Simulated assay, not measured.
Amino acid sequence: MNGRTYGILLVSIATVMWSSAGLFVRLLGLDTWTTLGWRSLFGGLTLLVISLYQNRRPTPAGTKHAIGLYLFAGFIAGLSMFGYIGALKFTSVANVLAIYATTPFICAGIAFLWMRERAERRVLIASGIALIGVLVVVGFAARFDDLAGNGLALLMTVSFAYLLIFARRHPALKLAPVNAVGSGLCLLLSLPLMSHQIPPPSELAILAVFGSTTSGLAYLLFMTGSRHIQAAEAGLIGLTDIVLGPLWVYLAFGENPGMPTTIGGALILFSVVWYMWGRLRAARALSRQRLKSAA
């Protein structure tokens, strides 16, 4: 498996994990901040265990980074995690989705300014189609006067996009401790707002799975996979979260997503499938060309 395929696989798995968040939220009877706090706690513990496992071997010479680099990256990760839940608290889901849909474009812009990486034309076209799909999903009902919620949604999107480029810029940076610091920061920010009563054992079990997958493994897999593909491409694949989330809730609870979500989701899926099909054809053509050259 080549590096590009490996990256696409990891990013896709992470996106599927993220899309399960709606299922966990439906199973829990907790408020937003309490859910976020416990999710961050279990996600951080999962990443801490992974970090300790990764550090069981001596770090190769020349790959050690200053503690400040990890704290900075962790701070950015924490802003992204907190901004997402905060945005949902202060504005509509429609607003958050509309702003989040700009992720591929923001990734492409940061990558060009910082690394002079030009996004492929096919990525930008597919991202544009996906953006139209998201606008259909929200039904053009976004309330752009909700400045606090919009600001948090933009903060979440920009910080997440920046973190993707940051991980590529520093390939020796270990991502598990970075996201562990982010989860810890998110927990600290949630503490004043969350309930301090311990949930019942059944909800604690759900929170443990919720945190370890969507806040722990998903972030780690996505950040690791994004190192092997273009940042805009990773952002495009991540948009399928918008489609898969309502789908899982519909299959599990029979919650009808509605016609706008169905039509917009189809557009988003089409954009990703169209892009991936083009990449697959290009890879096959290159493989055949190499075989002919070898012969």
Score class of each variant (00 low, 15 high):
N2R: 13
T5A: 15
L9G: 09
I13N: 10
A14C: 14
S20H: 07
A21P: 05
L23I: 15
L28V: 09
L30R: 08
D31N: 11
T32M: 15
W38R: 06
W38L: 13
W38C: 06
R39M: 04
G44L: 10
T46Q: 00
L48Y: 12
L52I: 12
R56W: 05
T59M: 15
H65V: 08
A66D: 15
L69V: 14
L69F: 07
F72Y: 04
A87N: 07
T91Q: 03
N95S: 04
I99Y: 02
I99S: 00
I99E: 00
P104M: 04
P104K: 00
F105S: 03
C107R: 01
F112R: 10
R116W: 10
V123K: 01
I125H: 07
V137W: 01
V138Q: 07
G139E: 09
A141W: 04
D145N: 11
L152A: 07
A153V: 11
L155T: 02
F160V: 02
L163K: 08
F166G: 05
A167W: 00
L175F: 06
L187A: 07
L188S: 11
L193Y: 12
L193H: 12
S195R: 15
I198F: 15
P199A: 14
P201T: 12
E203V: 10
V209K: 11
F210C: 09
T214N: 15
G216Y: 03
A218W: 02
M223Q: 12
G225D: 09
E233M: 02
E233L: 05
A234Q: 02
G235Q: 04
L244G: 06
L247F: 11
W248Y: 12
W248A: 03
L251Q: 05
A252K: 10
G254D: 09
E255Q: 06
N256T: 02
G258H: 01
G258V: 04
T262L: 14
I263Y: 11
I268T: 05
V273I: 12
A282N: 08
A282Q: 11
A283W: 08
R284D: 08
A285N: 14
L286K: 12
L286S: 10
L286D: 13
L286Y: 13
Q289D: 15
Q289H: 14
L291M: 10
